[in-house]
Nucleic acid binder design. Structure first.
Lengths: 355, 355
DNA sequence: CCACGGCATGTTTGCGTAAACATCGCGCAG
DNA sequence: CTGCGCGATGTTTACGCAAACATGCCGTGG
């Protein structure tokens, strides 16, 4: 029982195959002919318009079914001038945050009747991004969301082609574009204050890579919070988000007796950090408190379970879609940044400092 | 300097705006007019055809640039009969495997000049899948890849509409569809044998959820491998892929003195399992060996670093794209399963059993 | 009894592109 | 000097759909 066979070809003996031997699909005209109506009536049925007799409607539906008719989205898009598709540019799906955000975007978009087209950019240079944009423009896309967690390598700010509705996640381009982001500063402040409130004299920081906006903000907020509290700011240690880099950085920190509390810029690095501390006989949380950022699903199963800052990725995704659709419909050059609040999740990895 | 002006507008003084105040975009005709050539010549330049004088070409390019011309993908798709887009149906982006596969698909597809449209399906009932398919068909998509890690809830096998080129990841529908999958059995065998070779009398198994194909295969292969080696098959313990479920299952296993080796169906569950063992004073690997599956990036940073079965998701994604494009182009109803080999990564969580 | 309104349906047209076919002009062979 | 061939460019047309407009039919009120 294969796909196309046995259907009386109303166009006569024409085989009607495109290059490559594609299976021909039924058009509205085919359906119209079979149902004995005009193609416009088929269109009306297809789009659920009123003003079609129930009897006619049934005939058309029957014909559609018989021919396996599917509206041709290219033609429809051409006529309507929109694709109901949102493009998403992302530099990597390796980080939890990006993936969760993407998933939320896809779900929200689906709820609005939009699909999501993915466009991965290998290297985040401005040229690459621009290239991605031209590809997207030639693609079937009405608007674009850029999930950007890394600085553009060759330019301080993001410059993009006009005529495209853009919403950016996790950037500092709020004065040029619409930006939706987690409240990095608020989350960081909560984390650092939590440790200070437990009695630690200061808080060390295992920061993310230099080229990441999110990392930069967390580091800035860490410094600011300590400064506001009048504490000394220990030297910054950097990782690259990976657990491995957290481990390496942890080797350094484990050697420092005076380090009793560490704020890691994400949970993976916190994981590696804790391993290094463990290997060097420094217990968590008795000797050293560790706090993370993100609240990945596994964080509660680390050894010990990790206190961390929970990010609401679903909300970020939802807001992105909302913002981009709003921009699309109103064509308003709306700018500014929307912040999504975080929540501190207290688990076993933080405790008062040793006496 | 707007796009359509000074042009004899057959519809009268129409401003040529679509509903919603969309910015009108330049068409080939606009470019042609400005460049003083025919639209066909613009088309030729746009598609890089030979047979256009360099001089003409430059004029056209200049005109394109001035008008900010972008080919209209809807029209192009309508004419060409293809979108150069692959749809991906996925039930969840929560698991590492799905995400990594998706990323690889997107990258491979981009390499072939194809984009990827994402279609998340909330609940994996057959109706939902079929619904996703109809949406996809109405969408701008030439072929579909289904990343399916969960059984359909209301049917044993996957039934899908005709006329669509489909490749399925991680399924048992190889006799009906083209399937690409990790060699679950091979990986499992390697894991179990590794533990047996270390001297363990048998291997316990922390399986994945019942409704997952992958989990089922790993469980089957575990049983088979033990049987082949003439070992007793301990009772199966199940989790749901999450670290938390691994922890809960671990509480059970930790109580069993005779359990010296556990094969967890994924790394997250292994993580939770190790936490439970730790809490009950059973050391890994001295008292109990633990092996995982997937080799997530963090696996090397667990306490202790996890021995696990490495999956080559990139290869899976690549093969999917390759297969689906091949099917598309040849229209061959090619079936069967392609297996991607795994690799055992030995780290610190496995050792000979205690004497 | 006819006109008019309203509803179901049909016809025309154009969206932007590119294949197929038509034309034009130039250079070179005869 | 003429004609032929070929390369460069123009013209026509169709892709499938749906808005805009046209038609035809019915019933009702004057």
């Amino acid at each position: 029982m294969d796909t196309a066979e046995g259907v009386a070809d109303p166009r006569g003996a024409g085989v009607r195959r495109r290059r490559g031997g594609r299976v021909p699909t039924a058009s509205m005209a085919d359906v119209a002919r079979l149902a004995g109506v005009s193609s416009q009536t088929v269109s009306r049925v297809s789009n659920g318009y009123a003003g079609v007799t129930e009897e006619t409607r049934q005939q058309v539906l029957a014909a559609m079914k018989e021919l396996g008719y599917r509206p041709n989205s290219a033609a429809r898009a051409l006529k309507r001038g929109e694709f109901r598709t949102i493009g998403v540019i992302t530099f990597s799906l390796a980080t939890t945050g990006n993936v969760r955000t993407l998933e939320a975007i896809a779900t929200s978009a689906a709820g609005e009747g939009y699909a999501v087209t993915l466009l991965p950019v290998a290297v985040p240079t401005q040229d690459e991004v621009r290239g991605a944009f031209s590809r997207l423009e030639e693609l079937a896309v009405d608007a674009v969301i850029v999930i950007m967690e890394v600085h553009l390598l060759d330019a301080a700010t993001l410059t993009l082609p006009p005529h495209v509705q853009v919403v950016v996640v996790d950037s500092d381009a709020g004065d040029h574009y619409t930006v939706v982001d987690t409240d990095q500063a608020g989350g960081t402040r909560a984390a650092v204050r939590h440790l200070l409130d437990l009695g630690h004299r200061t808080v060390w920081h295992l920061g993310g890579p230099e080229d990441s906006f999110a990392a930069q903000r967390r580091t800035d907020a860490w410094r600011r919070t300590l400064a506001e509290a009048g504490r000394t700011v220990p030297p910054l240690v950097r990782g690259d988000w990976s657990a491995r880099s957290g481990y390496l950085a942890g080797l350094e920190l484990a050697a420092r007796e005076e380090c009793t509390a560490v704020f890691a810029a994400n949970d993976q690095m916190a994981l590696g950090l804790m391993r290094a501390l463990h290997e060097h006989g420094r217990r968590v949380p008795e000797d050293v408190s560790v706090i993370g950022f993100d609240d990945i699903p596994e964080a509660g199963s680390f050894l010990p379970p990790l206190t961390t800052v929970h990010q609401d990725f679903a909300e970020v995704g939802r807001l992105c879609v909302e913002a981009v659709l709003r921009k699309m419909r109103q064509d308003g050059p709306e700018r500014g940044t929307t912040l999504v609040p975080t929540r501190l999740v207290t688990r076993a990895s933080t405790a008062p400092p040793p006496r």
